[in-house]
Amino acid sequence: MEDPKKTALFYAHQKYGGKIVDYSGWALPVQFEGITAEHEAVRTAAGLFDVSHMGEIEVKGAQAEDYIQNLITNDVSNLKNDQVIYTFMCYPHGGIVDDLLVYKFTANHFFLVINAGNIAKDYEWMKDNIGTYDVEVKNVSEEISELALQGPKSEEILQKLTETDLSEIGFFYNKRNVRIAGVDCLVSRTGYTGEDGFEIYLDHENAEMVWDQLMEAGKEEGIKPIGLGARDTLRFEASLPLYGNEISQEITPLEAGLGFFVKLDKPDFIGKEALVRQKQEGLKRKIVGFEMEENGIPRSGYEVMSGDKVIGFVTTGYYSPTLMKNIGLAMVDIEYTDLDTPIQIKIRKRILKAKVVTKKFYKKNYKK
């Protein structure tokens, strides 16, 4: 087994007391002070994440837009320069290669942000589907560090380190060549927590210095370093999917309840035929939210029951620090997906009562 790769912030994590684990082949902090304290910091003030393990692919060329249109389920044709969209790449059968962000710099230049565990697979998929398109596809993941500053006080903190007016960066837009603490960065405003916030892409050499400057700038506002544990509870409360849980090669975007990001009226894209057919025939299963009615914490992979019948499986489950309840997301057979449907979760040897609730556990607080 190879040693996990280290990001440029590995020693910063040690300095701030991070508990390091192996995540998708990367040595990353699962927590610093503790998951609940970190979760609450992001909901009420600000948190700083190292997301340098994420992958980045650059697409350039005369047919870059046409190539990406064919590759993804969403529609880039109406994007303005420096706008960002969330989307999927699908296999011909409709299952998901990955979920990703597409940054449009210009019609001939795009920047794609993909999941850490899928970098090699995604890059091969993208190269295999170049066909006759006049494009250059380059994996630049090894060259880039990425920090995420999330929470209601993010803009206030980051503004201290730059002369760029951050209020001009809209939700799901990016700005290039932003100087942060004197370092040239790409800054976007998307987020994976349900809160306002920024992503900062920069070179490895300056990553630790910018991290330290942000921690110093946010002292009065209550900034905390955030690990993978709180990253997962935050995204889950905001009902944001995680690859390998709510979405995968075996799960389509429609089954995941993410059809909004699938534009079936586009002329064509890989997987369109299968997704059109699935929509016409009707879903046989779907991701739902649920709430425990008896005391137990649901975990990924646990069986969902209706009486003696297995009707699905938990994709993510936690004690929610914000709602102070045990809640989860689960893939269940379609006849059990109506709100308030009684279900049971098999937690070890116990069968505990739960009910189907809305997936919107937490009202998102993005900048409009």
Rank of each mutant, 00 (worst) to 15 (best):
I327G: 04
K266M: 06
T7R: 02
N118W: 03
E58V: 01
V137I: 12
K359E: 11
A256L: 04
K349E: 14
T106I: 09
T358L: 08
R189Y: 07
E2Q: 14
M324F: 08
I200Q: 09
G218I: 07
N174S: 15
E255Q: 15
L228S: 10
S306P: 06
V262L: 07
G151H: 02
L112C: 03
P298V: 00
I251V: 15
V102M: 03
E168L: 09
Y91M: 11
R43D: 03
G317M: 06
F171G: 08
K263H: 13
G61R: 09
Y192T: 04
Y201M: 13
V42C: 11
K224Q: 05
L100R: 08
V76K: 02
S248Q: 11
W26C: 00
F361S: 13
I169R: 01
A46N: 06
C90A: 14
I20D: 07
Y133E: 07
A238P: 14
V84Y: 10
P321C: 00
D333S: 02
T162V: 10
A230Q: 12
E136A: 05
Y86E: 04
Y243A: 00
L101P: 06
Y11E: 13
G317A: 00
N81I: 09
E163H: 04
Y103W: 06
K5Q: 02
N78R: 12
T164I: 07
Y319C: 05
M305Q: 15
I96L: 04
T36A: 08
P4N: 14
G289T: 11
V210G: 08
F111R: 12
G117P: 06
D66A: 15
G94E: 01
G229D: 13
N70T: 12
K121D: 14
I311H: 00
D338S: 14
G55I: 05
S248T: 09
L158G: 00
L254T: 14
K138Y: 05
T73D: 11
K80Q: 14
G117L: 02
Q280S: 02
A330N: 03
E142Y: 10
L100I: 06
Q150K: 02
L101K: 15
P225I: 00
T316W: 05
N295K: 12
A27H: 13
T252W: 04
I130N: 05
N206F: 09
P29M: 02
N70Q: 13
I114K: 04
L166Y: 01
S52N: 03
Q159P: 09
L202V: 01
L161P: 03
F361E: 10
A256F: 00
V314M: 12
I20G: 02
L147M: 12
S300N: 14
I85C: 13
A274L: 01
V51C: 07
Q280I: 02
V183Y: 03
F105K: 09
G197P: 05
L79K: 13
K138M: 01
V356K: 00
